[in-house]
């Protein structure tokens, strides 16, 4: 591919129906959505717990989560690399250079975002709801689903921020995935590779495809949010 216009390059890539590209896109989505799912399962209730509880060291934990939102992906990647390497503590699992390793790295990257943002949202809600919920016998762990559901519109931001960071990230997945053709090559690592090969138009074309995917997902989330807001009176 020596097309010099990135938009044409992107278009040609899409219409060619190239199975390699389809595989790369599918892997990117699989890795990113898996990481997002794990981060949400842990981060939403975790953030809510952090918002509602008071214990020594809580402040440090909150600061730590906030700071880790800025964790450089390369550092996260390197840490997971050393953890998963055969010479590392989880080496026997044989996970280095697999999509699972990439999922782990991205989970580490976006978990602090989900934790911090959901803590913020739930903290505001909890200060408003606390007396009423305790009066209704809805406190402690039982309050978490209630608070997450009532914060759902604000929590969409946490989900999208997590998705954005994971899907745009290249440093960590490159290190722990190895950018192996047909196995751990994602859109972002393919962009890095094509850039390295001097195929700048193709690299930018892949970038356009990634941006398109992100736009579609964000647009979908926005429309769903609008619809849900409009029908927020519906039984759930």
């Amino acid at each position: 591919m020596s097309e010099s216009n990135p938009f044409v390059a992107a278009w040609l890539l899409i219409v060619s129906g190239d199975p390699t590209l389809a595989g790369i896109v599918a892997l990117s989505l699989r890795v990113t959505l898996s990481a997002l799912a794990i981060a949400l399962v842990i981060g939403l209730p975790g953030g809510a717990f952090l918002a509602m509880s008071r214990f020594p060291g809580r402040g440090l934990l909150v600061i730590g989560c906030n700071a880790l939102m800025g964790l450089p992906p390369v550092v996260a990647g390197l840490a997971i690399y050393l953890l998963l390497s055969r010479a590392g503590p989880l080496g026997p699992l044989g996970l280095l250079f697999t999509p699972s390793a990439m999922v782990m790295a991205q989970t580490v990257l976006i978990l602090p975002i989900v934790l911090s943002l959901s803590r913020q949202v739930v903290e505001d809600l909890w200060s408003e709801y606390e007396e009423q919920l305790r009066s209704l016998g809805c406190s402690g762990a039982r309050a978490i689903p209630t608070l997450l559901w009532d914060g759902r519109f604000s929590l969409v931001t946490a989900v999208l921020a997590g998705f954005g960071r994971a899907s745009a990230e290249v440093g960590a997945v490159l290190i722990v995935g190895g950018n192996i053709a047909g196995h751990t090559r994602t859109i972002t690592t393919a962009i890095a590779l094509e850039t390295a090969k001097g195929e700048l138009a193709l690299a930018l074309g892949l970038g356009i495809i990634l941006l398109g995917l992100t736009l579609v997902l964000n647009g979908g989330a926005y429309l769903m949010g609008q619809y849900a807001r409009r029908s927020a009176g519906q039984p759930w």
């Binding site: 794990i38 842990i42 699992l93 044989g94 996970l95 697999t98 699972s100 782990m104 989970t107 978990l111």
Partner: peptide, 14 residues
């Protein structure tokens, strides 16, 4: 919990 999830989810791959 994270470690547990990681180990379970990735066991098959391993």
């Amino acid at each position: 919990l994270f470690l547990f999830l990681a180990v379970v989810a990735l066991g098959a791959a391993a």
